Amino acid sequence: MRVCLLTDKPGHPLLAATAALLTGAGHRVTFLDPDGGPGDSWERIAADGPAEVFLLKAHTPAALALARRLEAHGARVVNSAAATELCQDRHRIAGTAEAGALPMPPTRTLPTLSEALPGAERQRYPVMVKSRHSRRADLVARVDGPDALRELAAAWPDEPVVLQEFVPNSGWDHKLWVISGEVFSAVRPTPVGGPPRDAHPTPLVRDLPSGWVATALRAGEVFGLDVYGVDLLDREGEPVVVDVNAFPGVRGPEGAPGALAALALRRP
């Protein structure tokens, strides 16, 4: 079987380990960067011969366009272009989560951050301000008052944003990664504020409350994803979804490369 990974980071630990497992089992693995390399991506795929499955790790417009074209020609793409694109838009994530009855903080969308300024004094604080369109080096910030909001708007005046209710928490994100229904977990400091002083051990999935695992699995159904991450915060013992990522960079959990290799080889 031939598997093609669409990515600009072939050395990523998850992808490299998955490729090693597949090639060790006699399968052919190729890497293609939709945004780089000589010539047109479609022509490079055609010249190299068709693959049975394409793993869509890249999320750029060029990668999404290539994935849509592959799907139109009957190729199996994981995750789908539509599901991947959905997870790049935090406005659509919030709407999809609400429609799917997933617990997520109330979220509102503004065309630009500067449009939040007229209501700065009436805004409830603290509030999370995030770029509407998820990408590398995007905006994710906790804002604690009107002055901080004005300062942030001066730096990002034209940025489309979502304003999300701040969830009081321990300072740790619980990251649940799911690959074809198999759940892996990790704990990371929240991306805003200083990390807590005490180390926090990564919980085993079996030790997580059943509701947390069920929420992560439910997110895959709601968003139409096979490989994804769910960031959860603990709000009075209940999980709250604060982000959903298509094909994230899963680092650390044992068994993740094997799960991804099995997914690639799974027949539709």
Rank of each mutant, 00 (worst) to 15 (best):
H59P: 06
F54Y: 03
A17H: 04
W42M: 13
L32P: 06
D35P: 06
A65V: 04
A63C: 13
T18H: 04
E52T: 05
T23A: 15
D40T: 11
K57W: 10
P61F: 00
L55D: 04
T30V: 06
A51G: 11
A19V: 09
S41R: 02
A63W: 04
A19L: 05
P61L: 01
A51Y: 04
G26Y: 03
W42G: 04
A16C: 04
A51R: 03
A17R: 01
L66Y: 00
F54K: 03
R28I: 12
A51I: 10
G39H: 14
A25V: 08
E52S: 07
H27C: 14
R28Y: 10
A25P: 07
G49S: 12
A51L: 09
L32R: 09
H59R: 12
S41A: 13
A20K: 08
L64Q: 02
T30D: 06
L56S: 01
T23K: 12
L64S: 11
L21G: 12
T60I: 01
G26E: 01
P50Q: 14
A62N: 03
A19N: 09
P38N: 15
A17V: 02
G24F: 10
P34D: 00
A63I: 06
L55H: 07
E52R: 03
A20L: 02
G49A: 05
A58F: 08
L55W: 03
A46V: 11
A25S: 15
L21K: 09
A46E: 15
D35Y: 11
P34Y: 01
W42Y: 09
A19T: 14
A47C: 07
D35E: 11
L66G: 00
R44M: 12
R28W: 15
L64W: 00
L66Q: 01
G24D: 07
V53P: 01
P50D: 04
A20W: 02
P61G: 01
T60L: 04
A47S: 00
T23C: 12
G36T: 07
T23Y: 15
P38Q: 15
A25Q: 14
A47P: 04
D40W: 10
H27D: 10
A65P: 05
D35G: 08
A17D: 10
G36A: 13
A65C: 11
L32F: 15
H27A: 15
A16E: 02
A63N: 05
A16D: 03
V53K: 01
